[in-house]
Design a protein around this nucleic acid. Sequence first.
DNA 1: AGGTCGACCTGGCAGC
DNA 2: TGCTGCCAGGTCGACC
Length: 272
Amino acid sequence: MPELPEVETIVQDLKKKILGETFETVKILDARVIRGLSSRSFAQKIQTQRIHDIQRRGKAIIMTLAPSQKFFVVQVMMTGQLVVRSIPDSLPATKIIFRLFNQKYLHYNDQRLFGRLQVVDQLEELKYFRVLGPEPFSRAFNPEQIKSTIKKRKMPIKPLLMDHTFVAGVGNIYASEILFAAGIHPQRSADSLDDQEIIKLRDLTRMVLKKAIAGRGTSMRDYRDSNGEKGNFKEQIQVYGREDERCPRDQSLIQRIVLRGRSTFFCKACQQ
DNA sequence: AGGTCGACCTGGCAGC
DNA sequence: TGCTGCCAGGTCGACC
Protein backbone atom coordinates (compact mmCIF):
# COMPACT_ATOMS: atom_id res chain seq x y z
CA MET A 1 0.00 0.00 0.00
CA PRO A 2 0.46 3.09 0.26
CA GLU A 3 2.66 3.73 3.22
CA LEU A 4 2.11 6.30 5.97
CA PRO A 5 2.33 9.47 3.80
CA GLU A 6 -0.14 8.14 1.25
CA VAL A 7 -2.61 6.96 3.89
CA GLU A 8 -2.27 10.26 5.75
CA THR A 9 -3.09 12.10 2.50
CA ILE A 10 -6.17 9.95 1.96
CA VAL A 11 -7.35 10.51 5.54
CA GLN A 12 -6.89 14.29 5.45
CA ASP A 13 -8.79 14.52 2.16
CA LEU A 14 -11.58 12.21 3.28
CA LYS A 15 -12.04 14.39 6.37
CA LYS A 16 -12.70 17.38 4.15
CA LYS A 17 -15.02 15.51 1.84
CA ILE A 18 -17.07 13.03 3.81
CA LEU A 19 -16.62 13.63 7.55
CA GLY A 20 -20.08 13.88 9.11
CA GLU A 21 -21.78 12.29 6.12
CA THR A 22 -24.03 9.24 6.39
CA PHE A 23 -23.85 6.00 4.41
CA GLU A 24 -27.06 5.29 2.53
CA THR A 25 -26.36 2.04 0.65
CA VAL A 26 -23.46 -0.33 0.09
CA LYS A 27 -23.08 -2.11 -3.25
CA ILE A 28 -20.60 -4.97 -3.03
CA LEU A 29 -19.27 -5.94 -6.45
CA ASP A 30 -16.65 -8.38 -5.15
CA ALA A 31 -17.14 -9.87 -1.70
CA ARG A 32 -13.56 -11.12 -1.44
CA VAL A 33 -12.40 -7.82 0.07
CA ILE A 34 -14.76 -8.20 3.03
CA ARG A 35 -13.12 -10.15 5.83
CA GLY A 36 -14.88 -11.96 8.60
CA LEU A 37 -18.41 -10.89 7.65
CA SER A 38 -20.97 -11.83 5.03
CA SER A 39 -21.77 -9.15 2.46
CA ARG A 40 -25.19 -8.70 3.98
CA SER A 41 -23.98 -8.25 7.51
CA PHE A 42 -21.15 -5.94 6.38
CA ALA A 43 -23.66 -3.73 4.55
CA GLN A 44 -25.96 -3.73 7.57
CA LYS A 45 -23.19 -2.49 9.83
CA ILE A 46 -22.39 0.40 7.46
CA GLN A 47 -25.78 1.54 6.16
CA THR A 48 -27.42 4.44 8.04
CA GLN A 49 -24.22 5.05 10.02
CA ARG A 50 -22.69 8.51 10.12
CA ILE A 51 -18.94 9.04 9.73
CA HIS A 52 -18.16 10.59 13.08
CA ASP A 53 -14.37 10.59 12.83
CA ILE A 54 -11.63 9.59 10.39
CA GLN A 55 -8.10 8.85 11.51
CA ARG A 56 -4.95 6.98 10.57
CA ARG A 57 -3.00 4.50 12.64
CA GLY A 58 0.02 2.95 10.91
CA LYS A 59 -1.19 2.27 7.39
CA ALA A 60 -4.82 1.73 8.41
CA ILE A 61 -7.72 4.13 7.82
CA ILE A 62 -10.16 4.14 10.73
CA MET A 63 -13.65 5.60 10.46
CA THR A 64 -15.62 5.83 13.70
CA LEU A 65 -19.29 5.23 13.02
CA ALA A 66 -22.21 6.81 14.84
CA PRO A 67 -24.44 5.94 16.48
CA SER A 68 -23.09 2.36 16.54
CA GLN A 69 -19.68 3.45 17.93
CA LYS A 70 -18.11 0.72 15.80
CA PHE A 71 -14.90 1.14 13.83
CA PHE A 72 -14.83 0.78 10.06
CA VAL A 73 -11.22 -0.15 9.30
CA VAL A 74 -9.79 0.00 5.78
CA GLN A 75 -6.35 -1.38 4.98
CA VAL A 76 -5.67 -0.69 1.33
CA MET A 77 -2.50 -2.80 1.28
CA MET A 78 -0.70 -2.65 -2.07
CA THR A 79 -3.34 -1.56 -4.56
CA GLY A 80 -6.48 -0.46 -2.70
CA GLN A 81 -7.93 3.01 -3.31
CA LEU A 82 -10.70 5.04 -1.64
CA VAL A 83 -11.97 7.55 -4.15
CA VAL A 84 -14.83 10.04 -3.68
CA ARG A 85 -16.93 10.52 -6.82
CA SER A 86 -20.15 12.25 -7.78
CA ILE A 87 -21.26 9.45 -10.12
CA PRO A 88 -21.42 5.70 -9.41
CA ASP A 89 -19.73 4.48 -12.62
CA SER A 90 -17.23 1.78 -11.80
CA LEU A 91 -13.82 0.71 -13.03
CA PRO A 92 -12.86 -2.96 -13.46
CA ALA A 93 -11.00 -2.67 -10.14
CA THR A 94 -14.00 -1.23 -8.29
CA LYS A 95 -15.04 -3.71 -5.61
CA ILE A 96 -17.44 -1.71 -3.43
CA ILE A 97 -19.50 1.43 -4.00
CA PHE A 98 -20.73 3.25 -0.88
CA ARG A 99 -23.52 5.71 -1.58
CA LEU A 100 -23.75 8.63 0.81
CA PHE A 101 -26.83 10.72 1.58
CA ASN A 102 -25.12 13.81 0.14
CA GLN A 103 -25.29 12.25 -3.36
CA LYS A 104 -21.62 11.35 -3.34
CA TYR A 105 -20.09 7.93 -3.81
CA LEU A 106 -17.11 6.43 -2.06
CA HIS A 107 -15.46 3.84 -4.30
CA TYR A 108 -13.21 1.10 -3.01
CA ASN A 109 -10.97 -0.03 -5.89
CA ASP A 110 -8.43 -2.81 -5.54
CA GLN A 111 -6.57 -4.45 -8.38
CA ARG A 112 -4.94 -7.22 -6.38
CA LEU A 113 -7.63 -7.79 -3.73
CA PHE A 114 -5.13 -7.74 -0.85
CA GLY A 115 -7.02 -4.94 0.87
CA ARG A 116 -9.24 -5.50 3.88
CA LEU A 117 -12.39 -3.77 4.98
CA GLN A 118 -13.60 -4.68 8.43
CA VAL A 119 -16.10 -3.44 10.99
CA VAL A 120 -15.22 -4.06 14.63
CA ASP A 121 -16.39 -2.99 18.10
CA GLN A 122 -12.85 -2.48 19.36
CA LEU A 123 -9.65 -1.90 17.39
CA GLU A 124 -7.88 -4.43 19.62
CA GLU A 125 -9.93 -7.17 18.00
CA LEU A 126 -7.59 -6.84 15.06
CA LYS A 127 -4.12 -8.28 15.52
CA TYR A 128 -2.67 -5.47 13.43
CA PHE A 129 -3.50 -2.91 16.12
CA ARG A 130 -2.49 -5.15 19.01
CA VAL A 131 1.08 -5.50 17.76
CA LEU A 132 1.51 -2.12 16.06
CA GLY A 133 4.56 -0.15 17.21
CA PRO A 134 4.81 3.58 17.94
CA GLU A 135 3.80 6.23 15.43
CA PRO A 136 6.96 7.87 14.04
CA PHE A 137 5.84 11.37 15.08
CA SER A 138 4.95 10.33 18.61
CA ARG A 139 7.13 10.72 21.72
CA ALA A 140 7.11 6.95 22.08
CA PHE A 141 9.39 6.79 19.04
CA ASN A 142 12.48 8.06 20.86
CA PRO A 143 16.15 7.06 20.93
CA GLU A 144 15.90 5.19 24.25
CA GLN A 145 12.94 3.15 23.05
CA ILE A 146 14.59 2.45 19.69
CA LYS A 147 17.82 1.47 21.39
CA SER A 148 16.17 -1.03 23.71
CA THR A 149 14.33 -2.69 20.83
CA ILE A 150 17.25 -2.63 18.44
CA LYS A 151 19.64 -4.31 20.88
CA LYS A 152 17.51 -7.44 20.72
CA ARG A 153 17.30 -7.46 16.94
CA LYS A 154 20.02 -8.94 14.80
CA MET A 155 18.26 -8.53 11.49
CA PRO A 156 19.41 -5.97 8.92
CA ILE A 157 18.16 -2.47 9.69
CA LYS A 158 16.12 -2.18 6.50
CA PRO A 159 13.63 -4.98 7.15
CA LEU A 160 13.46 -3.86 10.78
CA LEU A 161 12.44 -0.37 9.70
CA MET A 162 9.64 -1.96 7.67
CA ASP A 163 8.52 -4.07 10.63
CA HIS A 164 5.33 -2.43 11.88
CA THR A 165 5.90 -3.70 15.41
CA PHE A 166 9.09 -1.58 15.48
CA VAL A 167 7.62 1.62 14.04
CA ALA A 168 4.23 2.15 12.41
CA GLY A 169 3.79 3.16 8.80
CA VAL A 170 7.19 2.72 7.12
CA GLY A 171 7.08 0.45 4.07
CA ASN A 172 9.39 -0.56 1.26
CA ILE A 173 9.80 2.77 -0.54
CA TYR A 174 10.42 4.95 2.50
CA ALA A 175 12.67 2.40 4.22
CA SER A 176 15.16 2.78 1.35
CA GLU A 177 14.71 6.57 1.28
CA ILE A 178 15.18 6.98 5.04
CA LEU A 179 18.36 4.89 5.11
CA PHE A 180 19.77 6.82 2.17
CA ALA A 181 19.02 10.11 3.93
CA ALA A 182 20.64 8.81 7.12
CA GLY A 183 23.70 7.41 5.29
CA ILE A 184 23.15 3.96 6.80
CA HIS A 185 23.68 0.80 4.75
CA PRO A 186 20.47 -1.28 4.54
CA GLN A 187 22.32 -4.49 5.42
CA ARG A 188 23.83 -3.14 8.62
CA SER A 189 22.81 -5.34 11.52
CA ALA A 190 20.28 -3.38 13.59
CA ASP A 191 22.16 -3.99 16.83
CA SER A 192 25.30 -2.41 15.35
CA LEU A 193 23.86 1.12 15.25
CA ASP A 194 25.51 3.53 17.69
CA ASP A 195 23.70 6.25 19.66
CA GLN A 196 24.30 8.93 17.06
CA GLU A 197 23.05 6.73 14.25
CA ILE A 198 19.91 5.90 16.23
CA ILE A 199 19.13 9.59 16.66
CA LYS A 200 19.81 10.19 12.99
CA LEU A 201 17.54 7.32 12.04
CA ARG A 202 14.73 8.67 14.21
CA ASP A 203 15.10 12.23 12.90
CA LEU A 204 15.35 11.26 9.24
CA THR A 205 12.43 8.84 9.50
CA ARG A 206 10.35 11.80 10.60
CA MET A 207 11.81 14.19 8.04
CA VAL A 208 11.40 11.90 5.02
CA LEU A 209 7.81 11.02 5.97
CA LYS A 210 6.95 14.66 6.65
CA LYS A 211 8.23 15.78 3.25
CA ALA A 212 6.37 12.93 1.56
CA ILE A 213 3.14 13.98 3.28
CA ALA A 214 3.74 17.54 2.07
CA GLY A 215 4.07 16.10 -1.45
CA ARG A 216 0.84 14.10 -1.02
CA GLY A 217 2.71 10.80 -1.26
CA THR A 218 4.47 8.75 -3.92
CA SER A 219 2.78 7.04 -6.86
CA MET A 220 5.05 4.38 -8.32
CA ARG A 221 2.15 2.67 -10.05
CA ASP A 222 -1.22 2.15 -8.36
CA TYR A 223 -1.43 4.67 -5.54
CA ARG A 224 -4.14 7.31 -6.00
CA ASP A 225 -5.49 9.83 -3.50
CA SER A 226 -9.20 10.26 -2.79
CA ASN A 227 -9.51 12.45 -5.91
CA GLY A 228 -8.09 9.62 -8.00
CA GLU A 229 -4.88 11.70 -8.49
CA LYS A 230 -1.26 10.57 -8.20
CA GLY A 231 1.03 11.80 -5.43
CA ASN A 232 3.75 14.37 -6.23
CA PHE A 233 6.61 12.95 -4.19
CA LYS A 234 7.97 10.63 -6.90
CA GLU A 235 10.18 13.41 -8.29
CA GLN A 236 11.77 13.76 -4.87
CA ILE A 237 12.50 10.05 -4.47
CA GLN A 238 16.28 9.71 -4.24
CA VAL A 239 17.00 5.98 -4.61
CA TYR A 240 13.88 3.79 -4.71
CA GLY A 241 13.42 2.31 -8.18
CA ARG A 242 16.55 4.08 -9.44
CA GLU A 243 18.92 1.16 -9.98
CA ASP A 244 21.90 2.13 -12.19
CA GLU A 245 21.07 5.82 -11.96
CA ARG A 246 23.52 8.25 -10.37
CA CYS A 247 23.42 8.89 -6.64
CA PRO A 248 22.34 12.52 -6.13
CA ARG A 249 25.05 12.98 -3.47
CA ASP A 250 28.18 11.51 -4.99
CA GLN A 251 27.25 10.41 -8.52
CA SER A 252 28.12 6.74 -7.98
CA LEU A 253 25.68 4.12 -9.26
CA ILE A 254 22.64 3.23 -7.16
CA GLN A 255 22.44 -0.50 -6.42
CA ARG A 256 19.50 -2.83 -6.05
CA ILE A 257 19.61 -5.84 -3.74
CA VAL A 258 16.87 -8.07 -2.35
CA LEU A 259 16.43 -8.20 1.42
CA ARG A 260 13.75 -10.46 2.89
CA GLY A 261 12.30 -10.74 -0.57
CA ARG A 262 11.91 -6.97 -1.06
CA SER A 263 13.78 -4.72 -3.49
CA THR A 264 16.16 -2.44 -1.66
CA PHE A 265 17.96 0.52 -3.21
CA PHE A 266 21.04 2.28 -1.86
CA CYS A 267 24.32 3.98 -2.66
CA LYS A 268 27.30 1.84 -1.72
CA ALA A 269 29.58 4.87 -1.51
CA CYS A 270 27.61 7.05 0.88
CA GLN A 271 25.74 4.51 3.00
CA GLN A 272 28.02 2.80 5.52
C1' DA B 1 11.42 -15.83 20.52
C1' DG B 2 13.33 -13.89 16.56
C1' DG B 3 13.97 -14.42 11.79
C1' DT B 4 12.79 -16.07 7.07
C1' DC B 5 9.77 -17.62 3.45
C1' DG B 6 5.71 -18.28 0.85
C1' DA B 7 0.96 -17.33 0.17
C1' DC B 8 -2.53 -14.26 -0.93
C1' DC B 9 -4.12 -11.92 -6.19
C1' DT B 10 -4.06 -9.45 -10.67
C1' DG B 11 -2.05 -6.96 -14.41
C1' DG B 12 1.76 -4.64 -16.80
C1' DC B 13 5.90 -5.04 -19.06
C1' DA B 14 10.36 -6.83 -20.96
C1' DG B 15 12.31 -10.34 -23.58
C1' DC B 16 12.18 -13.86 -26.77
C1' DT C 1 1.17 -11.51 -31.84
C1' DG C 2 1.64 -14.32 -27.99
C1' DC C 3 3.74 -16.68 -24.77
C1' DT C 4 6.72 -16.85 -20.16
C1' DG C 5 8.60 -15.00 -16.29
C1' DC C 6 9.28 -11.33 -13.29
C1' DC C 7 7.79 -7.46 -10.73
C1' DA C 8 4.71 -4.56 -7.62
C1' DG C 9 3.57 0.98 -1.61
C1' DG C 10 1.57 -5.23 2.83
C1' DT C 11 0.47 -8.62 6.18
C1' DC C 12 0.12 -13.06 8.25
C1' DG C 13 0.86 -17.82 9.41
C1' DA C 14 3.90 -21.67 9.12
C1' DC C 15 8.19 -23.07 9.76
C1' DC C 16 13.34 -23.34 11.61
